[in-house]
Simulated assay, not measured.
Amino acid sequence: MTHRILVTGASGFVGTALLQLLEREHAGCKVFAFGHGEGQRNPIDLRDRDAVDGAVREIQPTALVHLAAVAAPSDARNAPRHAWDVNVTGTMNLAESVMRHAPEARIVYVGSSEAYGASFQNPAGPLTENAPLRPVNIYGATKAAADIMIGQLSYEGLRAIRFRPFNHTGPGQSDTYVVSDFARQVAEILSGKREPVIHVGNLEAERDFLDVRDVVRAYATAAIRVSENGPDCVYNIASGRPRRIRDILDALIVQSGIDIEVREDPAKLRPNEIPIAYGDASKARAELNWTPLVPFEQTLADVLGYWRRACSPR
């Protein structure tokens, strides 16, 4: 059997990492990469039901990995209606088209740990997949709504696997996200482009961080190797270890080898900040044979290296 894998959001940070993994380790698969926006290959607007329908009907995928989304919480907060249209209606368009035109295909829905929201308050330990979805921001709400919708459609025959990944980073990530933001600032200091001062938001929050290369291994496994489907096929992708944001910044400063002043910037503070969020991925370990492999120190070094190359004189 030749796998025909349709990847939405293929031009994004995670999509790029997934395509690289599929090309490197699953060369026999036929991959159809869909992005969005001017200049992207195979652009498709998920809100356009007819366009989505036509693409799925033509490709006849054996699996669809759905990464396309308004993915930054700040972007969702600034344009909430757009976030709902893309993250929920766009997901519905894809799911309905798969059920109509490729009913045997598996849809791998990539949600978010942000869907748990207030369930992180006063937890007894890392959250499992049984924790209630109680989103506290617009991004989390859209991802929770689409997650529930995919779960409901699986009762009607949609062959779905749902993931709830926790924070992940790696080389190439936008500086909209905290690790990449810190690394960019450190790289600019090292290249002489700014004074030795880093501007930060809340450093006391604790989050569960992963390397994007570990995360996309789970998605590829689900698309190619997993045969189970159904309402219970939902998995946290997590390290199970919370890391304080301040400790991540300190590690990057140590890697820089220089003294850097840290200043709080009120503009970088997020509303509805959850103090600590981490997840239990034992179900993914048991059923998908997935576990994170990349040491976090290596992840930080790779992100800093990426930004040092980006900031170096051409």
Rank of each mutant, 00 (worst) to 15 (best):
A79P: 01
P126R: 13
N122K: 12
S174H: 02
Q60F: 08
Y177R: 13
S74N: 14
R100E: 10
V136C: 12
P80T: 01
Y109E: 08
A115M: 03
E188C: 05
V86S: 08
P165E: 12
F163N: 05
I150M: 14
P73R: 09
A115L: 01
E204R: 14
D75L: 05
T176G: 13
P132R: 14
V197D: 01
I59F: 05
P135G: 09
D175H: 12
H199W: 06
D175I: 02
F182M: 06
Y116D: 06
A115Y: 02
H199Y: 11
L127D: 05
D181A: 12
I150H: 12
Q152W: 09
A69G: 10
A102D: 01
A102H: 02
T169N: 13
I189V: 07
A145N: 02
G125D: 01
S174G: 00
N137F: 02
S191M: 13
P165T: 11
P132E: 14
A187N: 05
S97W: 00
R106P: 00
M149K: 12
L64H: 05
A102S: 13
E195A: 14
P132I: 08
I59C: 07
A187E: 02
I148W: 15
R81S: 11
Y155Q: 13
R159E: 03
S112A: 05
N130W: 07
G172P: 00
I148K: 15
T142N: 04
V56H: 06
I107M: 15
Y177K: 11
P171K: 12
I148S: 14
K143M: 02
R100M: 09
G172C: 04
I138E: 11
S154L: 06
A83L: 06
P171W: 09
A118I: 01
V65T: 11
V86K: 05
N122D: 12
L67A: 13
H199E: 05
D75F: 03
P73G: 09
F166I: 09
N87C: 01
D75H: 11
K193A: 08
D147S: 08
P126T: 12
I150F: 09
T142Y: 04
L67F: 13
S74R: 15
V70W: 04
P165C: 10
S119T: 11
G117P: 01
A68H: 07
I189D: 00
Q152Y: 10
F182S: 01
L127H: 08
L190K: 12
Q60C: 13
D85A: 15
M149N: 10
G170S: 05
P196M: 04
A68M: 08
S74F: 05
Y155I: 10
R77D: 14
H101T: 06
I138Y: 03
N130M: 10
N122R: 13
G140W: 02
